[in-house]
Each structure stands twice: as C-alpha cells, then as structure tokens.
Nucleic acid binder design. Structure first.
Lengths: 216, 216
DNA sequence: GTCTATATTCAGATAGAC
DNA sequence: GTCTATCTGAATATAGAC
C-alpha cells in the first residue's frame, strides 16, 4: 500500500552529513522510512513492531535492535525531517504552505504523519507530547512573522501588539493557519473527495491577511 | 474531573423509548460517561477496558457485560450526543460555534473527545471512521448553510455556485471553520496558554465571511 | 553488526457464579 | 440483571546465537 515511491534510495549524493556509509544506506534507514509510513497510516498506538517488521521481512526484535524501544523509534522518525522542500523565510512562507498542502494531497506520507501523530500526541502521557508542543511553538512564531511580512507596513504594528491576554493578532492568525492545515488533513484522510486542502488553505490565508489589514 | 454536570439523569420524562427503568439510571449510563472521559483523555487505542473499569471499581469484564466489545462501547459513546446546548440553525450557528469553543476551554470533556477521536479515526481500519466521515459531511453542510445565511443576499449566489471541481465557496469556508476548531483543540491541549480557541475561531469566521463578501 | 527464539506482561473476550 | 474468575492471544522487550 505504501509502495508509491518507486525509488528506494533517493537522496542527493554528497549530502553534508552522510555518516561514512561504507556499505549502503543501512538497515536503520530502511526501518526509519518504513516506520514513518506505518505510523502515518495507523498512528503510533495502533502500530505494532510486528507490523513494521513484517514489511521488511524481519522479526520485531530485528527492529528493536536498531532502536532500543518503540518510543525511541518514534522519536527518531519525528527527528527525520523532510528536507526535500525547505521552508523559505519571510512572506514567501505563506505560499509555501499552500504548496505543501497541495503536495500532501498527492503524496499522503510525510505530513500525514504529523497530522495523525500530533492529534494522538495530545492524549495523556504520549511520548511525542513535548516534541509536538515545541514544534507548534516554533511554527506559530515563524508563520506569525510571515503574516506580518505580508501585511502592509502600516498594519504591522497593530498586528504585532499584544492584547490584554498577551497574545498578538499575528500569532492568532498563525495558530489559525496551522490549525486549518491540520484539521483539513483529517477531513481529507476520511473523505478525499470532500475537501481540497490547498485551495481551502489559500482561502483562509487570504481571508486572514485581508482581515488583519483592516481597522474595524 | 468529570463531575461538572451535577444532574446525573437529565432526560426528558416521557421520552419515546424509555426502557422501563424501574431502578434508576443504570450502570450502563455511568460506564458510558466514564468511558467518554477516558477516551477523551487518552484516545481509543491507548485506553484499556481496565482503565475504565478501575474508575468505577469494577473489573474489565464488568464493562464488557454491558457492551459486547470495546468497539461497541466506543460506538455507544459517540452516539451519546451532548444535547445540553443544541446547535441553532441559520446564521446564529456561527456564533454558537464560538460559544462552543469558549466552553470547551473551560470544560475539557465532551468535544475534546471528538477532537482526539476524529484524528485517531483517520488511521487505517479505525472503528469510528464511518461515523466521523458522516459527521463531517453533515457538519460541512450545516455550517455551509450558516455561512450563506450570514452573507448579504447579493453574495449568496456566488458563494453557493460550484466551481469546476464541484465544490462551493461556502462549503470550503465550512470545511475551514471545522478544521480550525479541531486543529486549535490539539494545539490547546498541548499548550493551553498558547492559544485562545474562542477568539481565534471568531477571527477566522469573521475573516472568511468578509472574504466571501467581496468580489476580487 | 544482525537477527531468532524466548520471557513477561497485559490486552480483549468467554463462561458461569451470585 | 450484574459481575468475578479464567482463558487465549498478542504486545514489547531481553538474552544470546550467528
């Protein structure tokens, strides 16, 4: 089900941090990518090490040799960022988000992982809680800055002025954009025909930027 | 943690299908409410029948007597709608959504259940998939209508005219509103100080309605 | 460095006592 | 009508063979 990508070993040769692979990309890496696929499709709690192992024709213990525990494997998967399309800074980032939504619909993989796991992480004692809390904090900051960048200079001050609760309009807009993307992913996974992630994301970004460019 | 609602037996007397409750609201009902709380806090896959049973000082089998299986219990929990604040029709519904977001932040219970479970349901073979797919379809319809109601009559036609992909702007806005509410819930659960669900929800609704009231 | 075989814990569900 | 005691299978992790 996950063999959509034909090339098994696609990465730029001469990457900066290849850890001296005298053999070829070690088993560890195969496990990592397989685990990412399976976690994305079934969530963390609902995935067993046997599921992952079966896809590689090994036993569960084979997986555990490379990563000490299932939780460690999850952590490693989350750390494995997808650097194939680095997020640009500044106001270009907002366009990048739409592009990302577009790509996600074509390739239900990488970021489906984040949509499914982030919601799962919000449950008690989930091992990825801290990771996702930090991630959202960073994202809200970056996207908040991107929103400010897109506003006309005359609106920036208002949008970056904290209200009585200490939160800024730009930050609120950033939280909204992230929330829309996550929430849409869930709706789309359940019913792909029903929503167009990219266009709805674009609509919300446009609407929010326009809204922050008014005084009312 | 869950004793927010003081009245344990709130249902209209003379309801059409009261199954002759000679005693008082049966164990079944207690189990149902406890299960809802625990599913909300820990998700479905990560909750064991023992967890639920422990809170009632009984054994897992005690739970299974009332509901044939864990999946049946989940289904029953989902069916148990919270009728304490029925959603109004028409454009009032949008205000109701903001109110709902406000209440959710105060009482992390009922709809936290939906936020956590809906995302979990998007994973393979989850027992609640169909339930959530249907729920989202209905919600998009209702909220789409509410959006149209709020628009000026002169904009309604444009907003309800399907584009080349067969989807209407009002439907897109509806999907966006739902997505924002779900996504915010996740961010809020992970970091309650970081986002104000109600105000962000209001912001997005305002922005979308304003956006759909322009020609561009 | 890689994995098979095994131990241990805990899940969901069944049959039958109260 | 309600639940305790028990069975069966599957989960993660360990110890040690190749």
């Amino acid at each position: 089900m996950s063999e959509t990508t034909p090339a098994p070993d696609t990465r730029s040769p001469g990457g900066p941090e290849a850890p001296t692979p005298r053999k070829r990309v070690n088993r560890r890496e195969q496990i990592l990518r397989t685990a990412a696929d399976v976690f994305a499709a079934r969530g963390f709690n609902n995935t067993s090490l046997a599921d992952i192992a079966a896809m590689l024709d090994i036993t569960p213990a084979g997986v555990l040799h490379h990563f000490g525990s299932k939780t460690d494997l999850l952590t490693a998967v989350l750390e494995l960022r997808d650097d194939s399309d680095p997020a640009p800074g500044g106001s270009r980032m907002l366009d990048h988000l739409v592009t990302t939504a577009e790509r996600n619909a074509a390739r239900p993989g990488t970021t489906q992982l984040y949509a499914v796991l982030s919601a799962e992480s919000a449950t008690d004692r989930h091992p990825a809680q801290e990771w996702f809390r930090d991630r959202y904090t960073v994202l809200r900051g970056e996207i908040g800055d991107a929103v400010l960048d897109r506003l006309g200079p005359e609106h920036r001050e208002a949008a970056s002025t904290p209200g009585p609760d200490g939160r800024t309009p730009a930050g609120a807009a950033a939280a909204a954009v992230i929330a829309v993307m996550d929430g849409l992913q869930v709706q789309w996974l359940l019913d792909p025909e029903a929503v167009d992630m990219a266009s709805v994301t674009a609509l919300v970004i446009d609407a929010l930027v326009a809204r922050l460019s008014q005084e009312d």
